[in-house]
Design a protein around this nucleic acid. Structure first.
Length: 283
DNA sequence: AGGCAGGTGGCCA
DNA sequence: TGGCCACCTGCC
């Protein structure tokens, strides 16, 4: 075991709120806070812990290598500069969200994992989605070090029975996951091809999969394929847009369109800020 | 204790 | 197209 020898936030300093929202705000489901206040997480075959060491944060590897961890945490991107490109100068609410979560970022996650987790997400709360992901990892994923498992590959899931999948508390989502896994068996390059398309085409294509509608497609693309122009709209965003933008009664598809137009090519980052605000202060 | 949750698909007019 | 409803299950 190494010590906490990796310094985080060199390029883009993180606030504690922003880190918590990034790791536990619903863009990923594989980080959790330990009793001692550290964060522990897994992405792909990399596992690590993050600890606050004022004035910043430090990480230690549990499995995998430092460059993978740094890639996952998107340490190479200047998130303050990206946030500065959002239209906050003419949008007082957005300005206040950015101020509240300095350094908030979009993690880079393996596309296949993002899709799997968001297939689990339909009408579930974050806690429960995390439980499903953890169960899938323990039952079907590779053990990286004792007690810490990666999420399973789609190949592995394709061999599973629906009955066994349902033991991961998936409910009706199990059959979607199995159908998708079996589809990927016959089309191994399909997911990579999809990730390489521009956002609008990638979205259309993802929505061909059973269990994937506009919201899940947008989440998978924003969080798993670096499509920062994707603008996922869930109940939190509906609430945020009704409350702060006067868009009461608008339907999700209309809000999504408004968001992409109003916030522009980094709409997904704006969405993350609005989401974080709504969760923290919106009740 | 039971309603409800970060949706989607299928069925109706 | 647009509106409803079933689908599983466990958390608040």
């Amino acid at each position: 075991m190494t010590g906490f020898d990796l310094s985080l936030g060199a390029l883009s300093p993180l606030g504690a709120h922003a880190l918590a929202e990034t790791l536990d705000g619903g863009q990923c489901f594989r980080w959790r806070r330990l009793d001692d206040g550290c964060w522990r997480g897994v992405s792909g075959t990399t596992a690590a812990e993050i600890r606050e060491v004022p004035p910043g944060f430090r990480a230690r590897l549990i499995a995998g290598d430092a460059s993978q961890l740094s890639h996952h945490l998107a340490e190479d991107i200047d998130w303050h500069a990206l946030a500065d490109r959002l239209p906050w100068r003419s949008d007082a609410h957005l300005a206040r969200c950015i101020k509240a979560f300095p350094g908030l970022r979009i993690l880079r996650q393996p596309f296949m994992e993002t899709l799997l987790c968001f297939l689990c997400s339909a009408t579930k709360q974050i806690v429960q989605i995390k439980q499903m992901a953890a169960a899938l990892a323990v039952q079907f994923g590779r053990e990286l070090v004792p007690g810490i498992h990666a999420l399973p590959t789609w190949d592995r899931l394709a061999e599973a029975s629906e009955e066994r999948l349902r033991t991961c508390q998936l409910g009706f989502r199990a059959s979607y996951i199995l159908q998708v896994a079996r589809f990927f068996e016959s089309r191994p390059a399909w997911l990579d091809e999809t990730a390489s398309l521009p956002y609008p085409q990638a979205r259309e294509r993802l929505m061909e999969l059973p269990g994937v509608g506009g919201k899940i497609a947008d989440c998978a693309l924003l969080f798993g394929a670096e499509k920062l122009d994707a603008f996922p709209v869930d109940v939190w965003l509906l609430r945020a847009m009704a409350r702060h933008y006067g868009l009461d009664g608008w339907k999700p598809a209309q809000i999504a369109h408004f968001g992409r137009v109003h916030f522009g090519p980094l709409a997904g980052l704006a969405q993350q800020y609005l989401f974080a605000w709504e969760r923290r202060f919106g009740m």
